[in-house]
Nucleic acid binder design. Structure first.
Lengths: 150, 150
DNA sequence: GTGCGTGCAAAATCTTTGCATACGC
DNA sequence: GCGTATGCAAAGATTTTGCACGCAC
C-alpha cells in the first residue's frame, strides 16, 4: 500500500471554502482542519476526541466550538460523519481520491478497516435510480469479527 | 410486491430465546415484540416511539424498560439497530427472509426506502475474507435526494 | 422461594443554544 | 466598524443506572 496521500491541504479548497459566504477562517477552525489533515483519511474521531487532542496541543478551543465546526465542515462536504458501532458520531476527512469508501468493523474489539468497492457503488446507484432518488453518497458498514477476536 | 410476510411470530424463536439462560418473558417484553411484529420489517422506531406507542395502547411500560429491552433484543439478534439520518438510534425487526437489506435515505425529508442487493452482500463478504474477518452482516446506507425534494 | 425484571428518579452522556465578548475581514 | 465566531454556562436530548419491590418460573 502506498503512503497516505495528503488531500485538501491547508491552503487548498478547504481554506477557500472557509472564506466564502462571509465565513471566516479562525484559528480554531484552522486547528480542526489541520488535525484532520494530519491524521489523514481513515481515522475516525469523535467531537470529544478532537477537542481533547487540540487541548493537549495547547490550542484553546471550547467543545462547543468543536461541535459547531464539525457540523460546518460536514455541511461543506469536507468531513464525513460516520455512525459505526463505537458509540456516538465520528468524523473523518473527506477524500476525493476515495469518494465512497466503506468500513469493516469488528464487533468485539472495534477495530475498523476500510475498503472500496465499485460493485457497492454501482448497486447503490442502481437502487437509487430505480425509484427516482438522486444519489449523494453510499457507505457500506460491514459488521464482522476480526482474526484476533475469533 | 407481495404482502409483508410475518416473521418470528410470537410463539416462535423469539419466545424460545427469551426463555434461555434464565431469561424471562415478561408482559413488557412481549408487548415490545408484538409491536415490532405487527408493524413488520422495514419500519424504524426510536426507543421513544416504541414507548409512546405502547403507552397509547394502555400498556404499562417505562422508558427505562424499553431501552433495556431493545438492547436485549438487539444482542439476541432479533432486532437491528440502525443509525440513519433521523437523529438518534432506531430499531427494526430482523428478518430471515431479508437478511441484509439496505437503506436509501433522503437527506432532505428523511424518507427511507429499502432494497436488497446480492452484489453488495458479495462485496462485503469478499472484503471481509480478504483480511480474515468473519462476516456477520453488512448494511449499505445510501444518502440521496428523493423525487419530491429535488 | 429465588433471582431476574421493572419502575422510578437520579445521574451520566452527548449535543445544542443564548448571550456578551472577541476578532477576522 | 460590521457582523460572524467564540467561550461559557445553562439547557436539552438521549440513554444508563441504583435500589427497592414485584413477578416469572
Amino acid at each position: 500500500m502506498a503512503a497516505p496521500i495528503p488531500v485538501n491541504r491547508i491552503g487548498g479548497p478547504l481554506e477557500v471554502g472557509l472564506h466564502q459566504d462571509g465565513r471566516r477562517l479562525t484559528p480554531q477552525r484552522r486547528k480542526v482542519l489541520e488535525l484532520f489533515e494530519r491524521i489523514g483519511t481513515g481515522t475516525h474521531l469523535s467531537a470529544e476526541e478532537v477537542h481533547h487532542q487540540l487541548v493537549q496541543e495547547k490550542s484553546k478551543v471550547s467543545l462547543a466550538t468543536i461541535y459547531r465546526t464539525l457540523r460546518l465542515l460536514v455541511s461543506m462536504g469536507f468531513l464525513h460523519e460516520l455512525e459505526l458501532n463505537e458509540g456516538g458520531h465520528r468524523f473523518e476527512l473527506s477524500s476525493h481520491d476515495h469518494p465512497d469508501h466503506h468500513h469493516l468493523v469488528c464487533v468485539r474489539c472495534g477495530r475498523t478497516e476500510e475498503f472500496e468497492s465499485s460493485q457497492v457503488l454501482d448497486a447503490g446507484r442502481i437502487a437509487a435510480e430505480k425509484i427516482g432518488f438522486q444519489l449523494i453518497e453510499s457507505t457500506l458498514n460491514v459488521r464482522a469479527i476480526c482474526p484476533k477476536c475469533q
